[in-house]
Design a binder for these strands. Structure first.
Lengths: 181, 181, 181, 181
DNA sequence: GATGAATGAGCGTTCATTCAT
DNA sequence: GATGAATGAACGCTCATTCAT
């Protein structure tokens, strides 16, 4: 799975044939098929694990007693730091989210019954209810919150911009400015 | 070119082999090579034409005498409307921008000598100089301005949200909130 | 026809698609098919014309009253000079002779009813009859006479050796040494 | 490799697409690419192996203590017999030597630093030094020695002439007549 | 359970030939 | 009569998947 993630992150889906993944992993190509029925399934599993990992990480410092704004800033800062610290994971995420699977994932995220599963969802709904966050559809709020974050992370990884701690803080603040009432 | 744009928009690069493009266009596969030396060149041309078209459109209503905020709102509203009105063109743009070519294009856009070539670049630089726009690197401002717009446009096209005129206005305003001082 | 000969000579059959031939000739591709039913026929015609031209050239200075040796030396010298003076024609000839058509041509040359059509054939038969030339099958005599000549001409054209007049004379003499009694 | 050699020998490079080679070999087309990176490499390998085989064969009976003439006759006879005994190998060799690769090979053979690597080269140089062989450039001597041999072998394989032992001997002797002082 | 050689459909691309203009 | 755009079969090559060892 590491081999797959690395190759997809570095070269895109085109640059990650099963043979290369197997070679980098130091196993036979057939072996992969003992653990994943298809390449597609391998990639989906990879994404799910990564998604869970990020979710867990975000939940760690999460405290529903704190104000909405503080929780948002904290979560978003953690997320951006995570992307910068794990550029390969981020690049994989990006590739995945822009593939057909990505759309399915988003649909589930938005229309799923979610509940307490999705931290941001709760946060934004609560913010709307308390009139701290703009009264816009959840989808739009997601776009305002994540759009800049993902874009800035990508540009950072591509080397288009340096991101030190003050700049991270400013960027996250600007995301908040976009959604706040 | 329409056939290529449609297929890439609908199914991504993987779903647009030359044979399918030719079939949808109602021509032989070889015919395409009379007009484009390679598939790559076809796709790049497609992007360039689309890029020019959008640039021209944006420039039409552009008036440097108006305040920065007004110019931004107007341009961004026009852009979002364009994306909504031409979902296939938008989807193609998105695919392209996330391919390796996309990265090259972004690098040129950010580090190119641009000058008066890039409307948004001028706008944001001027806004920064006048202290209307946050004092952040151009790359970050681009991310704050375009990240939400592209995300919301994609979600609208995927049918995740309706975007009527008031909502368009609110979304664009929220983008401005992200970058404004 | 010149365009075809040049392209085939310079780049081989692979480098001479109809489109390139037409372009170099300054005509449309379709026009060629008004004069030659197929590409194959064009090439065969090209060869025939070249063959006739060489035959005519050889016959010019040919005089059956002169001794066999003298006639051979004169013809062979003329031939080698012709090849050196017309490298493209020679290269085409070579390409042709090593294609499947080449074999058919040789078969006809050897088993055809020839008669006075083929100068060398007469010359060698006469030489054999007069016991000036080795008593070997005509095919072998042809090989001894032409093998070195064609090889040396090719090497000269490829720039592997310079061929001045004395060396031409020595080479032709060596060919004669191979076939003479 | 046998399938490739046979097809190229029988039909030339044009008649040996990968699909046909695979079919004749009784394997899938992709299988070939497990062993050879490209078709070109397959063909070059084929040639190298054949070249080595012939070289080894020639060296077997080679004895520098014997006179130049005897060594030449022995080598040339062995070579001609080999060609007759392995017509497909000969035909392949011929095709290869007349392709662009052939020219490169010849250049290396003629201008390479050779040394004791090339039997004929040594033989002819020694013959020239001892004034047994004509004082002509090596290229010309090669042409005189090999031109007839290759031509006669080809005609034999095409069925234009029978070559029994006496005729083989006479042909080789005639080659010697061409180069001897 | 692990392997990696084998597979063959599918890819981007070329080119001899046709035919409406 | 000349044109050159259009054709589509065929090419060299890739790769997800299978299966005998």
């Amino acid at each position: 799975m590491n081999a797959a993630l690395e190759l997809i992150a570095e070269q895109g889906f085109h640059g990650a044939p099963i043979a290369s993944i197997a070679e980098r992993a130091g196993v036979g190509a057939g072996t992969i098929y003992r653990y994943f029925e298809t390449k597609e399934l391998l990639i989906n599993t990879l994404f799910q694990e990564l998604h869970n990992k990020i979710h867990t990480r975000l939940m760690e410092g999460y405290n529903t007693d704190r104000p909405v704004r503080e929780r948002f800033i904290r979560a978003h800062t953690g997320l951006l730091r995570f992307f910068i610290a794990h550029p390969l994971k981020f690049r994989f995420l990006e590739q995945y989210l822009h593939s057909p699977y990505g759309a399915i994932f988003r649909r589930d995220q938005i229309f799923g019954q979610a509940g307490d599963e999705d931290l941001y969802r709760m946060l934004l709904e609560e913010g709307k209810a308390r009139q701290i966050v703009k009264d816009l559809p959840l989808v739009v709020l997601f776009a305002l919150a994540f759009g800049p974050l993902l874009t800035v992370a990508r540009d950072r990884i591509l080397g288009f911009v340096e991101l030190d701690e003050p700049l991270i803080a400013q960027t996250v603040q600007a995301c908040w400015d976009g959604i706040k009432q």
